[in-house]
Amino acid sequence: MAKPELDESEQRDVTRLCIQSGLLLMQHGAESALVESVIRRLGLALGVGSVEVAIMANALTVTTLSGGHCITTVRRNEDRGINMHVVTETQRMMLSVEAGQLDLARAMSRLEEIKPYKYPRWLVVVLIGLSCACFARLGKADWTGCGVTFVAAAVAMAARQQLAHLHFSPLVNFFVTAFVATSVAAQGLIYKLGETPKIAMASCVLLLVPGVPLINAVSDMVKGYINTGISRWTMATLLTISTCGGIVLAMNVWKVWAWL
């Protein structure tokens, strides 16, 4: 079936919508395969002949082809932190377009309406504290150790949120947060709280494990996006190194060596 050709301004709008959706996905922690498939399906559903996507670590390029005319556009990508709600909403917008429920203009306004969903900060602090306490319990810590882990992780999470709020680089953020967490947990070792203070020290920094970048890195590489996979893996490694720096500094300040 031959598609009716789009005129230039329509094609330009479709291209803008495509790259804007792709950029939102990239900024909020979607893997490359999803970014590419959403952009491509969106463009094809809106009537362009073909869509080509090039994904780089910190930029996104989209070319649409319609009636022999190409439009190429590039956007710089900056990481906005993981927000799965934005990913879900962007994908649902694409699915609605594909189902014919949204036209171009309404798709654009729907995309602009997507706001990152935020949980109350105190709730995240409490739940991350509890999460790390559960990790401690899984690592066979006693209840006192779990309590120490809860306090250390919750304080660290509050620090992490504040530093992120002040737009510090994640590397600085993770360094300081690891220092805070280990400093609080080190008191358990200094004052001999419970039988398992070392497990508490190991568990309280688990809120800093870069799980999403690591998993995205491997899935990207498995699916053929070696470039973005390597850069994600490198970033995750840097974050781990930075966290270790914070741990080592805290252990040297408090004169406890709990890990090895």
Binding site: G29, I82, N83, M84, H85, V86, T88, P116, Y117, K118, Y119, L123, V124, L127, I128, L130, S131, C132, C134, F135, R137, L138, L207, G211, V212
Partner: peptide, 19 residues
């Protein structure tokens, strides 16, 4: 013990409450 961290990190990743 695994359900709690999964829930907590789900919140950290801003997964919508319904999911």
């Amino acid at each position: 013990l695994a359900a709690v961290p999964a829930l907590g990190f789900g919140m950290l990743f801003h997964v919508h409450p319904r999911i």
